[in-house]
Amino acid sequence: MKQNRFWAWVVFLAGAAYFVVPLAATFEFSLRMRRDYYSFDSYASVFSDPAFQATFSYSVVIGLFAIVMGIVVVVPAVYFVRLRMPWLRPFMEFVTLLPLIIPAIILVYGYIRLYNSSSIIPFTGSALGTDILLVFAYVTLALPYTYRAVDTGMRTIDVQTLTEAAQIAGANTVQIITSIILPNILVAVLSGAFLTFAIVIGEFTIASLLNRPAFGPYLQNIGANRAYEPAALAIISFIITWGAMGMINVLGRFAPRTSARTD
């Protein structure tokens, strides 16, 4: 038993070292812009770069749209499948797993080929169209996580009983979804939203191949041309990711724990 705990500590500390050292090294590196002493100059340089501000806000906006579209696509589908079309469940499970199996680069290549400027739906023919395509691409990337978050949320609140109770009280379907179901799975939806945000904010492959001025391609560009700013950007990205994940954790404490059924 004692030995058991000893090995647990060994494994944990070795793992912790592997994960902490690169962060520490990156942080140290980011402070070395001045030759003789540590400074935050690299951070100042990053924040004052207009391209940083422009690409970052672009990615935030795209991310917000992706979150909203994700909710519109996923929530009603999960609701109706849970409520009335359980036979569609395996199909949903399969579809939402696909983005984990099909690499993003293949999806975007498919988009470029299928929706080019001479096709029926020429998404890539205009900047706005490409932005819309990018939003949907991100909805696709986040789909496995959004779906699972929403599905878990609906499982814990017993959709069936809530719906029947609301119907007895005279609510129609739209009212049920917007004023009963959504508020009750808000925590789950928000968790999915923050995860989407974390995935989208620094995404490189799709944004780069669609030629959009997003944060990911900007990062790559800085990496190829500067020395210390990339380290600062890595730290900033890590903090953003940590912030999004921290929000999910905080939200988790408000999640409804009462569950009538655990099917």
Partner: peptide
């Protein structure tokens, strides 16, 4: 979720 370009920098 900390993959991609920032991880490469690190």
């Amino acid at each position: 979720n900390f993959a991609g370009v920032p991880l490469a920098f690190a």
